[in-house]
Design a protein around this nucleic acid. Sequence first.
DNA 1: TTTAATATTGAATGAATATTCAATAAATGA
DNA 2: TCATTTATTGAATATTCATTCAATATTAAA
Lengths: 215, 215
Amino acid sequence: MTKLAFLFYEGMKKKVKAEKKKEIITGFYDLSRLEGIENVSIAKIGKHLGMPPSLIMHYFPNKRLLVLGLIAHILHQYQLIYKPIINKLEKDHKVYPELLVNRLFSREWNLLFDDGVFFSCFAMTFRDETIKKEYKKLHIKLRNTLKTLLDKDPVFARGDTALLAEKIFVVIEGAYYYLSLIEDEKEYERKLSIFKDQVFQLLQVESQLILDENE
Amino acid sequence: MTKLAFLFYEGMKKKVKAEKKKEIITGFYDLSRLEGIENVSIAKIGKHLGMPPSLIMHYFPNKRLLVLGLIAHILHQYQLIYKPIINKLEKDHKVYPELLVNRLFSREWNLLFDDGVFFSCFAMTFRDETIKKEYKKLHIKLRNTLKTLLDKDPVFARGDTALLAEKIFVVIEGAYYYLSLIEDEKEYERKLSIFKDQVFQLLQVESQLILDENE
DNA sequence: TTTAATATTGAATGAATATTCAATAAATGA
DNA sequence: TCATTTATTGAATATTCATTCAATATTAAA
């Protein structure tokens, strides 16, 4: 086997392996949505995907690695929620508060993402340092993304964008947590508009402050 | 046995029963702090308390009831954190923003309370309606307490105190969630002061708005 | 002391758990 | 075709789980 052929072969093997791993993680995630992560066993995942538990353990030598894989998956998913927001706002070098707020609180939240799995895994941060670091990385990333967005607007760029991002995200996260408890559609909408307004005001106050300074 | 004696007897029995149940719940809580609630079994609680698992099941016929008992316990504990704040502020019919903020974000949080157990149980709200209702009740109660407090101050009473309480608590909850990830003391303090300032501003803006209106 | 309720014990249950292992099948280049 | 690596299978493991049950101990009134 030539070196090139070998590398290609290795690449193929890795690809197959990666795909299989992804299939297992996705199965794990789907079952977790349905039954709660704490009720999902390796045997159940196997049954769900039509493979023996031993095959799962071939790709994930122990359950913790499987859980870590799931967490990497959902944190990636979580970030994806914000992708369309970023793409839209990145083009214009201007942050329109109303648009930003609407996108930050968009309903894609609940559709693309299972809060139950997210919070179950979050609870693990208290007992697993690796998981804690993953969650922290996510939060830092999200805040940085927003900061970068704000930095592109000449108005906000004059203020403390990191601080503003911090203040905005704490409301988003509080809302994300609190709203997950509310099932009544009308009540949900009412509260949602309160929190949107709250973030909107943060943006308004900040931009007003900056403009006043430079008059 | 006279009726009175019977009632007394019944009362005694109930008291013993209640105390035993409390002992079990406390043991469950202590172990959950140490090992994570998902790793605590009835057998482990029994070992920890020096009693056979069958005795635990005598008081809690199945594990779900035991978990519900634990949740009632921690939600009660959670409320207690706010007790000193309320007592202090209730006497004066005046809300001092700085004092209120300092108390709302007091460090008794982390000392009296285990975040890991709280969030693990919170994750259960997504799969158990009873638990969800309990958590919701807690949040409503906390908001109402703050609203009542604000209502006692003639300044804030003129505004929408329910709305203000809602806005304050969403920051507290977001902060509670987010700060739980941060271990570095300095970083924690820095972020904490941001969120305190954020709530402080909510109070300031609101009171200023009300005072302006009545000039 | 008798009675009746409750408290406590310890042994036993079957089901489910993560994990191991040996055997076979499939893929792929030499 | 052969050799080697990886993928897949299915059976077996010990351990832990919540729960059941029958037997005994304790309590306190009658």
